[in-house]
């Protein structure tokens, strides 16, 4: 079975969105990636269970000026990855406006994950960290929870990665892909269930007609 998924990366400029995607798709890292203008596109096929998943990853530009283009990329997306730099609190705060924008413009079906970048900097010098992981988890459980009854505690949507040291990059996309497959399965199950239900309803529908004829 095959599955197409459109993933869009959003976040402030210079947090390392391109490095993150390039590490995942091409498994390379370059210290100074050229800035992204508008948006750039990368695709990767992955096999998980019986599914061939084609990930279309849209890497957007961080500059505020290109923000007006973003809806075109996130509107039809299945997953949004919000990126911030764990050594910059400002980038974490800036992420909030992206989240609000997504909530405003996209229906609740959009999956949202939060990725903190540049973990290598903190590994080398812990004092550089400006955003503790707990802050991110608390944030996620506050803003990403769908209602609380599904046992969502925020941590499953939060990741910290280093594109430079290739740490945690693969995992982010694996988690997302697995979730997408799960979602697809649920939709399929639902569909089958619905088909079955439709048949029973059809039987019910017959009855009044017979009765009315009788009266």
């Amino acid at each position: 079975m095959s599955l197409d998924a459109k993933i869009v990366l959003l976040g402030s400029q210079g947090v390392g969105k391109t490095s993150f995607v390039v590490r995942y798709v091409r498994n390379t890292f370059q210290q100074g990636n050229a800035s992204t203008i508008g948006a750039s596109f990368l695709a990767k096929k992955v096999m998980i269970d019986d599914y061939v998943v084609r990930l279309q990853i849209w890497d957007t530009a961080g500059q505020e000026r290109f923000r007006s283009m973003a809806p075109m990329y996130y509107r039809s997306a299945t997953c949004g990855i919000l990126c911030y730099d764990i050594t910059s609190e400002a980038s974490f705060k800036a992420m909030h406006s992206w989240l609000l924008e997504l909530k405003e413009n996209v229906d609740s079906g959009l999956m949202i994950h939060i990725v903190g970048t540049k973990l290598d900097l903190v590994n080398a010098d812990p004092s550089k960290r400006e955003v503790p992981f707990e802050t991110c988890v608390a944030y996620a459980s506050k803003y990403l929870s769908s209602g609380g009854e599904d046992g969502f505690d925020g941590s499953e949507a939060c990741h910290e990665i280093s594109a430079k040291d290739d740490e945690g990059v693969e995992e982010v996309f694996e988690v997302i892909t697995r979730k997408l497959i799960e979602k697809r399965r649920m939709i399929e199950d639902n569909y089958q269930e619905q088909q079955a239900r439709r048949q029973t309803i059809y039987v019910h529908n017959d009855e009044p007609e017979v009765k009315s004829g009788c009266c």
Binding site: N33, A34, Q63, E64
Partner: peptide, 18 residues
């Protein structure tokens, strides 16, 4: 309004790639 200098710095930092 777009805090250009910080933006320019960021981009200049990533110039001369090729």
């Amino acid at each position: 309004e777009c805090k250009d200098k910080d933006q320019v710095k960021l981009d200049v930092d990533r110039s001369f790639v090729f």
